[in-house]
């Protein structure tokens, strides 16, 4: 599987594909259709795509109103301008009344690259998962992104989906892959330590597993595409089984996947949890590879953290 593809590409294609099946599906964008890839949907269904201009707050509340008329709106922009700029609209217009709106947030994380800190959203998992009733998803590859879009359409209620700008390896076979909201995916079993990752970091976690093998360490890798509701059972099971966890996410280590995993294990299956992610900093401009290196979002750093986590075991 040498193919690489950005999850935002898969998002746009999935909207167009499922738009043909679900006639209530409409798409809103805030002057970024070319970048969020909703333009792919617009090309297929021009009369079901509404550009809202550079006004994300209005777009989100408009989507809320649209959903009350029976439509299934996907509102899209960069993660920064949805979860960030329009947080309060998401909370009050969509979350509180639990409306059937889907938020397609692209350009999440530092792999936005050259645009730098103002556009690199590292807080969206955190703020979105604090909204009661909000489902929060970050797919690991293009196949999972497509499946997540379908699942979001079929689920009734608010969903936040985070997609990435940069191409990432395709991990799953489209014809075989089964996506289940709220269920983690065991990418590889293991007995010494568990790496819990999401999004862009899943492929890197699998590389870390290979590095650890060379040192005789058997690491499990779990892909948590749905951060909320979290697959607590799976995570606690692996906490008990392997006795140590390392999380990996393209997000601030405060409030995101790492925090969610800590919350899951602390009460019932307390084990050491080390969190790989952006260490409470803003992003910066750069190409993807040097950015990942700069912030330690690498297979080598995950592997180091795994060894440290194992050393912390009682």
């Amino acid at each position: 599987m040498g193919e690489k593809k950005a999850t935002r590409e898969a998002y746009g294609e999935a909207l167009a594909e499922f738009g043909a099946v679900y006639d209530k599906l409409v798409v809103l964008d805030a002057d970024l259709a070319g970048a969020t890839k909703t333009a792919t949907f617009k090309k297929a269904f021009p009369d079901r795509h509404f550009d809202c201009g550079i006004a994300e707050g209005n777009m989100v509340s408009v989507a809320a109103g649209l959903s009350t008329t029976g439509l299934i709106p996907f509102a899209s922009s960069f993660a920064m301008f949805l979860a960030g700029r329009a947080f309060e609209q998401i909370r009050n217009s969509i979350g509180y009344p639990h409306l059937n709106v889907k938020l397609g947030a692209t350009h999440g994380g530092i792999t936005v690259g050259e645009d730098g800190a103002t556009h690199q959203c590292l807080e969206d998992f955190s703020v979105m998962r604090t909204i009661p009733g909000m489902t929060v998803i970050c797919p690991a590859d293009a196949t999972e992104a497509r499946a997540a879009v379908k699942a979001a359409i079929e689920y009734v209620g608010p969903v936040y989906l985070r997609f990435g700008r940069a191409a990432t390896p395709v991990l799953f076979d489209r014809d075989k892959y089964k996506f289940e909201l709220g269920k983690g995916v065991v990418m590889a079993d293991g007995s010494d330590v568990t790496i819990v990752a999401n999004g862009f970091m899943v492929a890197i976690a699998l590389e870390a597993r290979e590095l650890l093998k060379n040192d005789g360490i058997d690491a499990a890798v779990i892909n948590i595409h749905t951060i909320k509701p979290l697959d607590v059972e799976l995570i606690r099971g692996y906490a008990a089984k392997t006795g140590a966890i390392v999380t990996a996410e393209e997000h601030n280590v405060i409030g995101g996947l790492g925090s969610a995993v800590c919350e899951a294990v602390c009460g019932k299956t307390p084990v050491p949890v080390l969190r790989v992610g952006v260490q409470d900093e803003f992003g910066r401009s750069g190409k993807v590879a040097p950015l990942l290196e700069y912030y330690g979002l690498t297979a080598a750093n995950i592997a180091e953290n795994c060894k440290a986590a194992i050393a912390l075991k009682k």
Partner: peptide
Amino acid sequence: MTSGSLGLGLSAAAGMALGAKHQ
């Protein structure tokens, strides 16, 4: 429509009106 945070309701009303026209 749920409301109370000022400024949000008019957008939601616009969304409803668009939903009516669209359908």
